[in-house]
C-alpha cells in the first residue's frame, strides 16, 4: 500500500468539513517536503556536489594530474592494503561472534553485545591514541618493540590496527540481530538431515544472512577506506609511506593545493556514492527476496 492510498482513501468516508481539512494536509505535506529538501540540500547535497565541482574546477587534465603524483598512488595503495586486511579480519570476527551470540544461550550475552559496539562510542582520535599508548615509544610495548626493531606506530601495522578498531563492530552488528530474529530451527533441521556443522553453516546459515553480511562488509569498507581521525594519530604522516587517501587529502588541502585535494577526495566521494547505491540495492533485495 502506498502512502498516497493511505491519505486519499479515508477522505470519502469523512464528513465534508473534515474532508476540507484533509485536503489541507496536501499543503502541509508539500511544505514539509520542501523544508526537508532544502535542509538536505544545504547540508548534504551541496557538500557532495562541491567535492566534484572543486575537483574539476581546472579541467579534466588537471584532475587526472592529481593521480600521477607518486604520493597519491602510494596513499591509494596503502588504503587498499589496509582495507584488504581489516575487512576479512572483522568479517571472520563478525561470523564467529554472531554464531556464538545468536545461536547459543549463555549469561552475560547483552554485556558482550555492548562491548562489541564499544568502538562506535569512542572518539576516533582516542581510538588511535590507545594504540599509541600501547605500542608507542612511551607505551607499554614500545621499548621492547624498539629493541627488536619492530615498528607499529607511525608505520603500516598501526594504521591497520587503528582501522580494524574503528570498523570492528560493522559486520557483527548487522548479523547478530538478523540471526537472532531468524532463530535456529533451520540449522537444527539441517543437522537432523545429516549435515555436519560446517555444511550447516555454509549451506543454511550463510545463504540466509548473505545480504546482511554484504551490507556489513560494504559499510566496513567505506569506513576502513575513509577513516581519518584514528589513522591520523597513528600514522605519523610520512608522505608516500604512511599516508592513506584521507591523510593525503589533508596534506594537499593544507598546502592549498585544492584541486588535487578535491580530486583525490572525489575518489572517496565516489566510493561513498557506490556504497549508498549498493546499500539501496541490498535493502531492496531484502524486501523482495
Amino acid at each position: 500500500m502506498t502512502d498516497n492510498e493511505l491519505i486519499k482513501l479515508p477522505v470519502d468516508y469523512l464528513p465534508v468539513h473534515v474532508q476540507a481539512s484533509v485536503r489541507e494536509t496536501g499543503l502541509v505535506k508539500w511544505l514539509l517536503i520542501i523544508i526537508s529538501t532544502l535542509f538536505l540540500g544545504f547540508f548534504l547535497f551541496i557538500p557532495l556536489i562541491t567535492v566534484f565541482a572543486e575537483a574539476f574546477r581546472k579541467g579534466i587534465a588537471e584532475y587526472f594530474n592529481a593521480f600521477s603524483d607518486p604520493a597519491a598512488i602510494a596513499a591509494i595503495r596503502l588504503t587498499l592494503i589496509t582495507a584488504l586486511i581489516a575487512i576479512p579480519a572483522n568479517l571472520i570476527f563478525g561470523l564467529a561472534a554472531s554464531w556464538s551470540i545468536a545461536r547459543f544461550n549463555f549469561p552475560g550475552k547483552n554485556i558482550l553485545i555492548t562491548l562489541i559496539d564499544l568502538p562506535f562510542a569512542i572518539s576516533p582520535v582516542i581510538s588511535g591514541f590507545i594504540f599509541v599508548l600501547f605500542f608507542g615509544l612511551q607505551g607499554w610495548l614500545g621499548p621492547w618493540l624498539a629493541e627488536n626493531d619492530i615498528k607499529i606506530i607511525f608505520a603500516i601495522p598501526g594504521i591497520v590496527l587503528a582501522t580494524i578498531f574503528v570498523t570492528f563492530p560493522f559486520v557483527a552488528r548487522e548479523l547478530i540481530p538478523l540471526m537472532q530474529e531468524q532463530g535456529n530451527e533451520e540449522e537444527q533441521a539441517a543437522m537432523l538431515l545429516g549435515a555436519s556443522g560446517w555444511k550447516t553453516f555454509w549451506k543454511v546459515t550463510l545463504p540466509n544472512v548473505k545480504w546482511a553480511l554484504l551490507y556489513g562488509v560494504i559499510l566496513c569498507n567505506a569506513r576502513a577506506m575513509g577513516e581519518f581521525g584514528a589513522v591520523s594519530v597513528v600514522s605519523g604522516h610520512i608522505r608516500g609511506k604512511t599516508n592513506t587517501i584521507p591523510l593525503h587529502v589533508e596534506i594537499l588541502y593544507n598546502e592549498y593545493n585544492f584541486v588535487a585535494a578535491f580530486a583525490v577526495a572525489s575518489l572517496l566521494a565516489f566510493l561513498a556514492l557506490l556504497t549508498l547505491a549498493v546499500k539501496s540495492i541490498i535493502e531492496w533485495k531484502y524486501k523482495h527476496p
Binding site: L48, V51, M225, G226, F228, V249, Y253, A265, A272, K279
Partner: peptide, 10 residues
C-alpha cells in the same frame, strides 16, 4: 558513507 575528511574540506 562519506569520509569525514572529505566532508570537512567540502
Amino acid at each position: 558513507a562519506l569520509p569525514t575528511a572529505v566532508s570537512g574540506i567540502a
